[in-house]
Amino acid sequence: MRTWNDLDDFQAFIDDGGMVEAGDDMPDEYRSEVFRFIEFHANSELMGGLTERDWIPKAPGLRLKQIFLAKTQDEIGHAHLLYMVAADMGVKDRRSMLEDLFAGRSRFHNVFHYQAVTWADQIAVAFLVDAAAFASQRAVFAECTYGPYKRVLKRIVSEEGFHMRHGEEMLLRLAEGTEIQRQMFQEALDRWWWPAVQLFGPDSDPNDPLLAWKIKSQPNEQLRHAYIQKYVPLLHSYDFEIPDPNLRYDDDAEAWLTSDIDWEPLKATMRNGGPDSRRRIENAAANWTDTAWVREAMDHGVMDQNATAAAGT
């Protein structure tokens, strides 16, 4: 177990490229900030997975159902791994994290506070929102000084890359489809563009400790800017319109510039007061209650029998 005299000593260790491990006597400030960050990430994976699940029965065709099944399993699996890492930090146990989430006392990504109304919405989520989440996760993985989190992120980032390919494939199908399909995607884009851009959050406080401790490798505004530079030309290339009358290419800045962003919708989601927050949280809570029997079976040693069977004894 490593220990540090004070925060300056700890900062020097981080600046030197140090990696914190679960057994280290890390400063309380680091422990609680990193815990909150991972809990938010875990909650978001779980809420995102439940959205993917909603679309399994509605996805058109067996192959797309299979993809949505797999994505659901991915996201729920990611949540599971992240809750393990978070719970181990000793701030809050796993059950309390879940109970807080289902009681509306926790936060999760803004994009899961909106309703996906049509299949095209779900494709916009796969194409735009997953890409934003992926960019933000990759930026955390890039440095990430908390070892157990970084190891889980390695697999999450690899799998999200796979989701991105599915998102592109599904978008292409609509983009090259009929006028009605293109219209459906345009309407979905109108609903999802701003939530996706806002996922990165408002400009970072330069003194954000998560930046100093290298959990975040880049400030929010840099990630948001890079995302806009990539997705504006991409959506234009498919001949879709971005719902921002002030969007323009600035020759001096050599960049796409958007309207000033209204952060009120994001703030509302962080209070669980977004357009679909209530239904989403109630649905997740009902899911938790409905699956109590699985946890009960697990408590009675189903896993032990599985390990024995796997070993062929």
Binding site: I76, G77, P148, V152
Partner: peptide
């Protein structure tokens, strides 16, 4: 686990999933 081909375990020694 997060994938059909993987299950999840825990190492109590170094405390990593």
């Amino acid at each position: 686990g997060p994938s059909r081909c993987r299950s999840v375990a825990w190492c109590p020694s170094c405390r990593n999933p």
